[in-house]
Each structure stands twice: as C-alpha cells, then as structure tokens.
Simulated scan of single mutants.
Amino acid sequence: MVKIADIIKYEGDNSTFVWKHPSEDFNYMTQLIVHDSQEAVFFKDGQALDTFQAGRYTLETENIPILGKVLNLPFGSQSPFHCEVYFVNKSVHMPMKWGTDSKVQYLEPTYGFPISIGASGEMNLRVEDSSKLLMKMVGTEEILDQEKVKNFFRAFLMTRVKTYIAQVMKTNAISIFEIDENLTMFSSQIKAMLDADFDDYGIALEQFFVTNIAKPDGDRQYERFKELHFRQYADIAEAKLKQQVDVINAQTEAQKQRLLHRRWL
C-alpha cells in the first residue's frame, strides 16, 4: 500500500542548495510548509509545474491549478496524486573556495615574456531561478549540496576562469609584479564575465574574489625580470628623492640669500 504524506516540509541543512522530499505520493489535503528563503517546486514527468514561496498551504486544486490541469483532475477533487517535490534554498550560501587546476599561460605585458600563474579565491552563490537550476543541474539527484555544486562547476569554472584571467590581464596591461595591488579590480572584472555563465544554470554569483595569485617564484626568467622591475622602481624612487632634496636645498639657499640681502640694507 502506498503511503501518502500528510505534511511536506524541508528536512535538509543550511549548506544544501536543493533537497528532494522522499515521498512522491500526496493528497490534495496534504499540508505544504515552505520556510523563509525557500521555494518548493512540484515536478511531474521531468517538467517543473507549480512553485510555492514561503508559507503554509493546504494542497487543493485551487492552490495548484497547473498540476491539477496536467493530471486532468476536476475542480475540488481530493484524489491522491504522484509527483516530485524539491525544496530550493535561495539564501546566499557560505563562501566556497575555488582554485585553478593548472597554470594560466599568458604574455607578461610590461616586459613581453611568457609566464605561467595560478589563482585561487572564494565565491558566494545564490539560487536565482529554481526551475532552471532543477532542469539543468539536479536531474535525478535527491540532494544538491555545496560539495556537489562545487564539483559540478569545477571543470566549467576552471575553463572560464583561466580564459578570463588572461583576458583581464591583457586588456588592462597588468604587470605580474603589480597584480597584488589590483586584486579588487581583477576580482570585479572576472565576476562580471562569470555572471552570465552562472545565470545559465539559474544561479546568481553574489560575490567572487581572487585572493591569491601563485607566481612562478624560482623560475630563472621570472626572477630576472622581477629584479629588473624592482631595480627600475628603486632608481625612480631614488631620482624622485634626489629631486626633492635638490628643491629643498635650492629653497634653503634662496632663503639664505634673502636674509643676507636684508642684513646689508
């Protein structure tokens, strides 16, 4: 005998993006409870039907008109029905770490030498379109947690991030020796590029941070240009300091001359 669920409610944890209710047989008098920052989506034969926002509902034909129409049930019917119910957590999830799985190859814009770098950071995700997420990512999964989302996006993210890193560095002519001071701009531009990619899966990329750039320390060519770069900056700083000292000396000498001139008057 099929057991019909009396109450449909979320029983997952806060790290879960999507949780499927274990029962698939319901009655039109079943109670549906949807918590804040959640949506409940009814599926039938792989098709997303009715969506419920936060609240408490008694399932009746007037509450789920699309499902009732699909099942060809008359208005006011209390017959049991079979479908799948997914609860989608739409709150912003805790930061998820990311990192390139291999080095990014690009031509250093200042000195024109080829270089390989890695990158890592954190990102925050939020479900924007529940139906799109369920159709594209969930499939037959009963639980979609942070680890599954991260694994799902790993290859997808790595391909795009490595391409975008090279594009941003080339477009902005960012020297490898100045990249650490440009991480905020770097992060915001890569996020802007990734937004549309995540949107295709119904997910909003709330925040995206590049927190570390792995440079090829120890590489002979890299170390040679790094020494050249900082020597040039040291020379420039020394020249500016000398110029300031010369200006001060000139001002001091001029002041002395004015004092001597007054004394002889």
Rank of each mutant, 00 (worst) to 15 (best):
V210F: 04
E227I: 10
H229W: 06
K191E: 08
A166D: 02
G218N: 06
T163D: 12
T171E: 14
Q243T: 10
A173I: 09
Y222L: 01
K240P: 00
T171R: 15
K191V: 02
D199T: 09
E238L: 12
L205A: 06
L228I: 13
V247Q: 11
E206I: 13
A196C: 05
S187Q: 03
Q243L: 13
F198A: 03
V245S: 04
K162E: 08
V247H: 03
Q207W: 06
F230I: 06
S187R: 06
L194V: 03
D195Q: 12
V245W: 09
N212W: 09
Y164P: 01
A239L: 13
M169V: 15
I236V: 12
I236Q: 14
K242T: 11
D180H: 10
V247F: 10
I176S: 07
A234E: 15
M158W: 09
N172H: 14
Q244C: 08
D195M: 10
F209C: 07
I165W: 01
D180L: 10
A239P: 00
F198H: 03
F225Q: 01
G202D: 05
V161S: 02
Q232E: 15
F156Y: 11
Y233R: 13
A214R: 08
I203R: 03
Q189M: 14
R220H: 07
I176P: 01
Q207S: 14
K191D: 02
A192Y: 06
T163G: 04
L183I: 05
F209A: 12
P216I: 09
K226V: 02
I213W: 06
I176N: 03
R220E: 15
F209L: 15
Y233S: 03
F177Y: 12
E227F: 02
L194P: 02
I203E: 02
T184P: 00
Q167E: 15
V161Q: 02
R154T: 12
F208N: 01
A204C: 07
R220Q: 11
D180T: 05
S188P: 01
V210L: 08
K242Q: 11
A237V: 05
Q189I: 03
V210M: 05
D180G: 03
F230K: 07
D219Q: 09
A234W: 05
A196N: 04
G218P: 05
G218H: 08
S175C: 14
